[in-house]
Design a binder for these strands. Structure first.
Length: 677
RNA sequence: GCCCGAGUAGCUCAGUCGGCAGAGCAUCUCACUCGUAAUGAGAAGGUCAAGGGUUCGAUUCCCUUCUCGGGCUCCA
């Protein structure tokens, strides 16, 4: 056999026998590499290990520790899931099964049950399906790439309408599985033919797929778990049939799978809903209604501290505080346009027959604050000398969120926006946006979040958007400049803007790397026009101001939930509802303990005392459970010398610290956390 | 709103194949007064989410509603 020459990623050439495959190349380089190999990248295109090489090919071997290798493992596991479901549920058909973060899913439709509707999976089905998947893996079925023409593909998939839709519908899609009338498929030939082959003319399982795949089901697969069942609309479209989705997680090794499970457990421990109940911070009484929170004394204290600090910073930042009512006549939201677009998302009106003429009057609970702030702006003639005019309000708003979307404090029906509206001259917009973004990021950092990236949502192509193209371009450019000044990564989100203007949203990564969308800064090209806003310029002429909407926390409730998860309930000292707990060793130390607590309270710290009814160890344990920053233990030695025993959260126990020194440490710590503000 | 699952003491959960409702923690009382992550004893605590149906009898089976959880869709 004549040799051919292959170029490796390091630029070196390697002679191999003609007909050598990607897998064969890996084998020739080393046993270890061959064992870890999942796929190859040949001339920039991902290929199966069975792909034959040609002279001059540039080849990189992708192993199971590479991101693309893991992707392939997850993708191939999804195929095994589909095969297992089709084996166990005769008459089932399938949609798509992509890779997602940490795993994969596959969508199925089961045959109709007694009620004529497609059947659904039950939780008990998951172990059965998983067991069947392990059998398939143990069979070592190869993944065989088969290119067949579309007509043949339509025959093979004749009983699978979703696949037919893919064959027919995606011809123009460059990432399509069909190209020039040829459909790419992957077949898993079984060791023995299926009892009920679900495909016409194939003894086993076959799926439309671009690939590539692991070479066979035994290779790299097996470190997976099916995790949940859900309904999901075909092609994500609410008007299309709802399929049954099975989610799974898959990894390159058992250790990785175990580590993933551990991460989930850790995340569950910091779930703000769980911590909110455990730490007695807030609750959602059924009697009030879904998505409507009450804050208990400790949660209320944390929230007050958050709000107080925000108020101080806004005051210093040139904001003026306004207050507006929770309800309004419908006319206001007609003028703003909200009733046209978002009536579904609002609580239904409160109707009065005996007011406003024969039709009566409808009052609405407000879903947003901006129209009220606009009325304040419009309450009298405005001069350019007043601009930029920055109005701030902790505004309570109510939105009738769909019942299925409500989630703890992060998605509620009643919330308090830390809402500001800035009215400025068009020529000042860019500068205002830059300083605004700076202000926003600075404040978020003070609350302990410091890992951000930005998202720039811009106008889409085909949709209808308010304002002119020129205005959009100008506003978008101003936002880009502001983002550039921040030095943060900027992720484009084309078409993601609201109809009324482009926006920047600040995404924050929390202590365990999850991202949360927090602040938004939004340019509004619509409302100033709808409300006919004007100011008198230095030229004596009337001009239309630019309006910027901006929420920093998003909502106080949501931000509270995010911080709670970020800190896993262990708030920094400045935000802790109880900062110091003093524990007398015996009750005859009570007077001394009370004196220390009184002194700390007199200095503005939050301290309490728990008497010696219970053993010290148990009282310490309870204080740790409450995640208090400091526990002070005082006994005979301390009473004698004017000291305390300091047990700091996450620190070592220190005996004999003078009360002056402890107080000084506490003061320094809180000052450092709030920047002295 | 849609699909699946779950609601038993304040919390975490047993249990009842249809026949008087259970534990641990928390709470309260009493005793213990102890130097760094669970002292002991006792008491109290429930319309078994709500409403309807089947039944001699329903917390248990069926239906409806409410709430919660996981997804989908949505999020001005």
């Amino acid at each position: 056999m004549p040799d051919i020459s292959i170029t490796l990623p390091d630029g070196s050439s390697r002679p191999v026998a003609a007909g050598t495959t990607v897998g064969g190349l890996a084998e020739s380089i080393g046993r270890g590499l061959a064992k870890a190999a999942v796929i190859g990248v040949v001339n920039g295109v991902e290929r199966d290990l069975a792909h034959p090489l040609e002279d001059g090919d540039e080849v990189a071997i992708v192993t199971k520790t590479d991101e693309r290798g893991l992707f392939t493992i997850r993708h191939s596991t999804a195929h095994v899931l589909a095969q297992a479901v089709l084996d166990l549920f005769p008459g089932a058909t399938f949609g798509i099964g992509p890779v997602i973060e940490d795993g994969f899913y596959y969508d199925f439709q089961l045959p109709a049950g007694a009620d004529g509707k497609p059947a659904t999976f039950a939780p008990e089905d998951l172990p059965r399906i998983e067991a069947r998947m392990r059998e398939i893996i143990a069979e070592t079925q190869p993944f065989v790439r088969v290119d067949i023409d579309n007509d043949r593909a339509r025959e093979v998939f004749a009983d699978h309408p979703f696949k037919l839709e893919i064959i027919d519908g995606e011809a123009e899609d460059p990432t399509s599985v069909t190209e020039k009338g040829i459909a790419r498929t992957y077949e898993n030939p079984p060791s023995t033919p299926k009892e009920r082959p679900p495909f016409r003319g194939y003894p086993g399982f076959i799926d439309l797929c671009r690939g590539p795949h692991v070479p066979d089901t035994k290779a790299h697969l097996g470190h997976f778990a099916l995790t949940r069942i859900a309904g999901a609309y075909w092609r994500g479209d609410e008007s299309k049939p709802q399929l049954q989705r099975i989610y799974g997680t898959a990894w390159a090794s058992k250790a990785d799978l175990d580590a993933h499970r551990e991460r989930l457990e850790q995340a569950a421990l910091r779930d703000h809903r769980k911590l909110g109940a455990e730490l007695d911070l807030f609750s959602f009484p059924d009697e009030i209604g879904s998505g409507l929170a009450v804050f208990h004394p400790k949660g209320g204290l944390v929230r007050k501290l958050m709000e107080d600090y925000s108020r101080r910073r806004h005051e210093a930042g040139g904001y003026e505080f306004v207050y507006t009512p929770h309800i309004t006549k419908g006319a206001l939201f007609e003028e703003s346009g909200h009733l046209d677009w978002f009536a579904d998302g609002m609580f239904p009106p409160i109707h009065f027959d005996d007011e406003g003429g024969p039709e009566g009057t409808d009052y609405y609970v407000k879903p947003m604050n901006c129209p009220f702030h606009i009325l304040i702006f419009r309450s009298r003639q405005r001069s350019y000398r007043e601009l930029p005019l920055r109005m701030f309000e902790f505004g309570g708003v109510y939105r009738y969120e769909k019942s299925g979307v409500i989630h703890g404090l992060t998605r509620v029906r009643g919330m308090t926006q830390d809402d500001a509206h800035i009215f400025c001259a068009r020529e000042d917009m860019a500068e205002e946006l830059s300083s605004l973004l700076d202000f926003v990021l600075g404040l978020l950092r003070d609350y302990g979040l410091d890992d951000f990236y930005l998202e720039l949502s811009t106008r889409g192509e085909a949709e209808k958007f308010a304002g002119t193209e020129e205005e959009w371009a100008e506003a978008t450019a101003a936002l880009e400049v502001a983002a550039g000044t921040s030095g943060l990564e900027l992720v484009p989100d084309p078409g993601g803007a609201a109809f009324y203007g482009p926006k920047i949203s600040v995404q924050a990564r929390d202590a365990i790397g999850r991202t949360w969308q927090l602040s938004t800064i939004q340019v509004d090209l619509q409302l100033p026009q709808r409300f006919g806003l004007e100011y008198v310029g230095s030229d004596g002429a009337r001009h239309r101001p630019v309006m910027i909407h901006r929420a920093l926390f998003g909502s106080v409730e949501r931000f509270f939930g995010v911080l709670l998860e970020h800190y896993a309930g262990a708030f920094p000292t400045w935000l802790s509802p109880v900062q110091v707990r003093v524990l007398p060793v015996r009750n005859d130390h009570m007077a001394y303990a009370d004196r220390i607590a009184d002194r700390l309270r007199a200095e503005g710290f939050r301290a309490d005392v728990v008497d010696a009814t219970e053993k010290l160890g148990n009282r310490i344990r309870k204080a740790k459970g409450e995640k208090l920053p400091y526990v002070l233990v005082v006994g005979d030695d301390d009473v004698e010398h004017g000291t305390v025993g300091v047990n700091a959260r996450g620190g070592e126990v220190e005996r004999g610290v003078s009360i002056d020194e402890f107080e000084q440490r506490l003061r320094v710590e809180v000052l450092a956390q709030t920047g002295g503000r």
